[in-house]
Amino acid sequence: MTLTTFWFIMIAFLWTGYFVLEGFDFGVGALMPLLSRSDADRRQVLTTIGPVWDGNEVWLITAVGAMFAAFPVWYAHMLSGFYLPLFLVIVGLIVRGVGLEWRGKVTSRRELALCDAGIVAGSVLPAFLWGAVFGHMVYGTALATAAGGALSLTMAMLHGAVFVALRTTGPVRARARRAALFVSAAAVPLAAVALPSLPGSSALTVPDWSASPFLWASALAAMAALASGVALVWRRREGWAFTATAAAIVLTTATLFGRLWPAPMPGVTVTAAASAPYTLTVLTWLGVLALPGVIAYQAWTYWVFRRRVSARSE
């Protein structure tokens, strides 16, 4: 395996980490008003992601930073090419970030409502736009852009609803389960339409049977994971359901990046976009030395805050 291939896989890995982790943050933020009947409920819902969302967002900063370092040409074309959507992603992340951080430091109803609006808008907008951007990157059509956005938004909402069900007690937990089932009514059909064409077809909903068997396997596995996630939510196996929705996101992202290889954008091949071997070697050392530590201490955070959040706590 060449360094370029390795770094393409690393970029895919970083984006996967981002989509899995911030995926449920987005879902939690987007569903927060629907899962709550009172301000105490809203606090309970948000406390599930309170200690971790900021660390999760660093996966994005790392993914984009690593693209800049390893594939400068791809980074430059993607960011300047998706100019306005990415502007809106940033605006979303800004209002969501300050909403989450400042919510605990205001008291009046009006200010709480403003923070909540920031959290909801700042979760829905990026969750939709990331799917739209990558959908457009693959197919270049308006339909694929809309379908990609709808799929990433609904998958994030499902993933987030399952996360809330897993991390809370009481009425919020029951509402989160119902919300997950409700959202899956949109996410599953969308996945059934979009995922089969992801391995190779140039148009949405037209499967390409000659595409790589690996991509087919991962696309089908993604659909299976999603379906089993829904079944597990139905059976109230929240831990396994969360594992399944996380796996669905991992497999979808893997299929997506498999599809983007070896030319992620028109006129941009991975080989031509890559940095020289020296820089890629430096980055490899960096990744090998730093990433295991990062994953370990982030995992520790989840361990520290592993207890279900009840309505009274914090």
């Binding site: 690593a66 980055l283 520290v304």
Partner: peptide, 30 residues
């Protein structure tokens, strides 16, 4: 510049931002 300039940016994210954000979350809620 990406080949040169990107490396410190990637280092910043991996070595500094993860540390900062993850442990601050632990501090706030811990």
């Amino acid at each position: 510049v990406g080949d040169v300039f990107g490396a410190p940016l990637a280092m910043e994210a991996l070595l500094a931002f993860f540390l900062e954000s993850t442990f601050l979350g632990l501090w706030i809620f811990g």
